[in-house]
């Protein structure tokens, strides 16, 4: 009985006091439309497609973002330029379905798809929340400045022949039997 009373005093009453004492603490609320909150760079907001340091589209249409997407709101189609570079023919995100989970960014092997701190995406028409590649593609590298997938990959593209990628030897002469 005594312990119970003691517990009540030390636990419940102290709790009550602690909570009550918050009356003198300044509120954390940021009054958003009047005042813009600070958005952290890694905030998971509106999705963009970035370009590599050479200014080319980073997306290689590998479909990994689409398959990682838990709400299946990304659809794209691979196509290829004359010199073998893969890129998306179309790239569509249905933002009315997007849950900003960032799995697409996580899955992206080329750092092409990135989430940005912009969260002000409300629309009056739901149809306006379907974004195509023209809407998504930005002119910069986004959060990751140096990565260029095709400089690492072995595939030949315009401006990069076989053996010119990072850490690659010049192509083998198959007619030679020298070691």
């Amino acid at each position: 009985m005594l312990t119970l009373i003691k517990d009540t005093l030390t636990s419940q009453v102290v709790t009550l006091w602690r909570v009550f004492s918050h009356l003198w603490v300044k509120a954390d609320t940021v009054e958003y439309p009047d005042e813009m909150p600070y958005m952290f760079p890694r905030w998971r907001g509106r999705i963009i497609l970035s370009r590599d340091p050479d200014g080319e589209e980073r997306c290689v249409a590998c479909n990994l973002c689409a398959v990682a997407c838990p709400v299946d709101c990304i659809a794209l189609q691979k196509t290829e330029d004359d010199e073998g570079r893969w890129y998306p023919e179309f790239f569509r995100i249905n933002f009315s379905r997007c849950i900003m989970c960032g799995f697409c960014e996580e899955a992206c092997p080329t750092n092409a798809i990135q989430l940005t701190p912009d969260f002000e995406m409300a629309e009056y028409e739901r149809q306006d929340m379907v974004w195509e590649k023209e809407d998504l593609l930005i002119d910069g590298t986004g959060k990751y400045h140096d990565y260029n997938f095709y400089r690492v990959a072995g595939k030949k593209i315009g401006g990069k022949d076989k053996g010119e990628a990072r850490n690659e030897a010049v192509p083998v002469n198959v007619r030679s039997l020298l070691p």
């Binding site: 398959v67 709101c73 990304i74 659809a75």
Partner: peptide, 16 residues
């Protein structure tokens, strides 16, 4: 079981 893009494939035609 991992078919992708269901909610975006024809969203350009109609989001519904």
């Amino acid at each position: 079981h991992r078919y992708s893009g269901r909610t975006a494939m024809i969203a350009n035609v109609n989001v519904h």
